[in-house]
């Protein structure tokens, strides 16, 4: 996000938070504080991240309520320390069973607040807190979706395109690249980051379209085939440093394939297909497949050559299968 964009989000969040607290006070909502906190949790990240955080918060709150009902209601005669032991243990167990990654902390907050600070009035506290949390998450998601919306999908795509372009530049200088290991390690880190953010993308698309749509599938394919390009190129760099391609590898095939790869990725990031590069990659793949020795169970000396061939085939195949990046919709007044 750009600096002015980030400032605009901060101002949006501050304004919404102030208005929500003012409304809660004006309406004298019971436990209205949790409505404001629910909104805050959603707005602190982009839409997809907010949906995931909201899900964790709502489920964590519900599980906290269940644990409090058991610890303070069903087992009502326990001392506060024993009640806390039962409540906190249960809330973690419920959270793990529900597959929560952080929501059990909110559940723990519910247990601590009920048993340590609300005594006999715990039911009023947990009930209204749950209602306010759900309301807060709904308000937060609505604001996040409709007011200066920060989408996980656009941020993810921009990062993915940057990663693919850097991969293309690495292909361009692969045979003589200096310090390729550091470059590949950095690319791997970025790939892992993209992979970690996929659930946010899926959550956002599900909110908007009712189910994970083709954008999520395309993102998964970009990661999958981009990863294959990256590992194949990395192995190839190491193998080509060990040995030059054998005579049975069609001459000039390696630079041709790497050049096609760079052209193809650059075109895909711009939303084009580069059909000439695709056709040539297909030809390279066919030539190499035809040139492979009859029996690949070769003696040790030939293994490097077979690994070179294997990585070239992988590279060509992944480059052909890599999908196009979606382009941001053009504004109606663009170019006027």
């Amino acid at each position: 996000m750009t600096a002015p964009g980030r400032s605009a989000v901060i101002v949006r969040n501050g304004t919404v938070l102030a208005l929500v607290v003012a409304a809660c006070n004006h309406l004298a909502l019971p436990e209205g504080l949790f409505l404001a906190l629910g909104v805050l949790i959603i707005l602190e990240t982009d839409l997809g991240g907010g949906v995931l955080a909201g899900r964790e918060r709502i489920i964590g709150t519900l599980l906290g309520l269940l644990a409090v009902v058991i610890a303070a209601g069903v087992l009502g005669g326990l001392s506060s320390a024993l009640g806390v032991f039962v409540g906190l243990t249960l809330v973690r167990l419920f959270g793990f069973a529900a597959g929560l990654t952080s929501g059990f902390v909110v559940g723990g907050h519910m247990v601590a607040g009920s048993l340590m600070n609300h005594g006999d009035a715990w039911w009023h506290y947990v009930f209204w807190r749950m209602v306010m949390t759900i309301l807060g998450v709904i308000v937060g998601v609505l604001v996040s979706r409709h007011i200066y919306s920060q989408r996980s999908s656009s941020a993810w795509q921009a990062s993915c395109d940057g990663w693919l372009l850097d991969l293309a530049h690495l292909l361009e200088r692969l045979p003589d690249s200096t310090e390729p290991e550091e470059a590949f390690a950095a690319l791997r880190e970025r790939r892992n980051g993209l992979r970690r953010r996929l659930p946010q993308l899926a959550a956002e698309r599900t909110l908007i379209h009712g189910q994970p749509d083709e954008a999520v599938l395309r993102a998964q394919q970009q990661l999958q085939h981009g990863s294959t390009v990256m590992s194949a190129a990395r192995d190839l760099g190491l193998l080509l440093k060990e040995e030059a391609p054998a005579a049975w590898v069609p001459p000039g095939l390696v630079p041709r394939l790497l050049d096609d790869g760079r052209t193809r990725i650059e075109a895909l990031v711009q939303g084009r297909d580069a059909p000439d590069a695709v056709a040539d990659l297909g030809r390279c793949r066919d030539l190499l497949s035809a040139a492979l020795p009859e029996s690949p169970a070769a003696p040790q000396g030939d293994r490097t050559q077979l690994l070179i061939a294997s990585r070239l085939l992988l590279l060509a195949d992944a480059l052909i299968r890599l999908p196009r990046s979606p382009q941001p919709p053009r504004r109606a007044d663009a170019g006027r």
Binding site: S80, A81, L82, G83, V84, F85, V86, G87, L88, T89, R92, G108, V111, A112, L115, M116
Partner: peptide, 9 residues
């Protein structure tokens, strides 16, 4: 967690 909460209480 339960035990830590027990000690805290």
């Amino acid at each position: 967690v339960g035990f830590a909460g027990f000690l805290a209480a």
